[in-house]
Nucleic acid binder design. Structure first.
Lengths: 194, 194
DNA sequence: AGCGGCATGTAAGCTGTTACATGATTCT
DNA sequence: AGAATCATGTAACAGCTTACATGCCGCT
């Protein structure tokens, strides 16, 4: 057979989570530099991405080469600075990423290091279990308080953003309450023995 | 200076999350094969680890070489089968991993692909937003129902396990309610326009 | 003049996945 | 006898982090 006659679109492999997030961040703050994108990830309370230079700079160049980003360079001395915006096809790609596969991976029960550790907690002595639980509980308490304070001060630009923050707060509260109930349970078990 | 005179312990680098989980799983089901460990990860509702052969078999051999696991091999034809148990120092390592660094990474707000997408949802048209939200809501509903059914049927070995399951259920319910409230908000915004 | 934040970049490595490949055992 | 499941293994790669390296710019 001969080569396919239809014009091939440029690869169109699905975006990775980081690629999509970079597009999203640039969409929000355009025009902005790769450094700005880096800072957003670095300062995010979620630890998903570190915003490491080794990840961002090559990735941004790749998105540019694929036509998903547009660039404007400002020469300054021997090194130049580049500002990026999302192109029309970049916007399409972001939309496609958002809607395309609603399947399992997105919906699945989120990964939670605390849950993992709770699962194996029984290998510790009850006293050590309580020490750990109390430390975690305290950490989660300060986290909840910080988010509650943010909620009260309302530094959000839109009511949608405020709604998202509310959901995050609800989740960490639920998580904290969970750890609390486990602590109570372990404490009760220890008391029963005596 | 000359070489440090004190006897060096064998590396003692902190365990990775997967290494610790493998130790934990073997601790629960010992004696068991690497294949069993693989199945546990593969069948887990959490998608953290796939239980891929390429990860598990080399890892188990490494833990064995470090003395954290003990092995018993049963020859059968040209290939043999190996059962593992956690050694005393393996148990110590697991305990150390559980208690050691309670810091940020463990406590941090868990990664949630749905939250990520909610954050960028505004790039879609309101209609597309609702389509996506409804699909996600439905997926989360079936997930909640499955966990509720499991809760009712109570297939748990210990009341501690039941407590852990309760916490997971609370979390996914909170998450579902969050998505619900976002849907309601978007629907209201659409109505306001008309 | 020097320090801190802005800005860009690369090399090496860690950790896990995908995909393939093979053989043993059990069930029907 | 054939299929499903148990069991082990490897090679290639994907995706991101760590650590390093450099230079510009504004402030004090």
């Amino acid at each position: 057979m001969s080569v396919d006659a239809t014009t091939r679109s440029p690869a169109k492999r699905a975006l990775t989570e980081l690629e999509a997030c970079v597009l999203g961040v640039v969409a929000e703050r355009a025009p902005c530099t790769a450094y700005t994108v880096r800072s957003v990830f670095a300062e995010s309370p979620t630890r998903r991405f570190s915003g490491s230079a080794g990840a961002i700079y090559p990735l941004v160049r790749r998105l540019l080469k694929q036509g998903l980003l547009e660039a404007e360079t400002f020469p300054r001395g021997s090194r130049s600075k580049t500002s990026y915006t999302v192109s029309a096809s970049g916007n399409d790609a972001l939309k496609a990423w958002l809607t395309c596969p609603i399947d399992e991976d997105v919906i699945a029960i989120p990964v939670d290091p605390v849950r993992t550790r709770l699962h194996f907690l029984s290998v510790l002595t009850p006293a050590a279990q309580l020490r750990w639980l109390e430390e975690v509980e305290q950490g989660l308490d300060t986290q909840v308080e910080a988010l509650q304070a943010e909620w009260r001060d309302d530094p959000f630009n839109t009511s949608y953003e405020r709604l998202l923050a509310r959901g995050t707060l609800d989740l960490v509260e639920t998580r904290r309450d969970w750890v609390r109930s486990v602590t109570a349970f372990v404490r009760a078990s220890v008391h029963d023995v005596h």
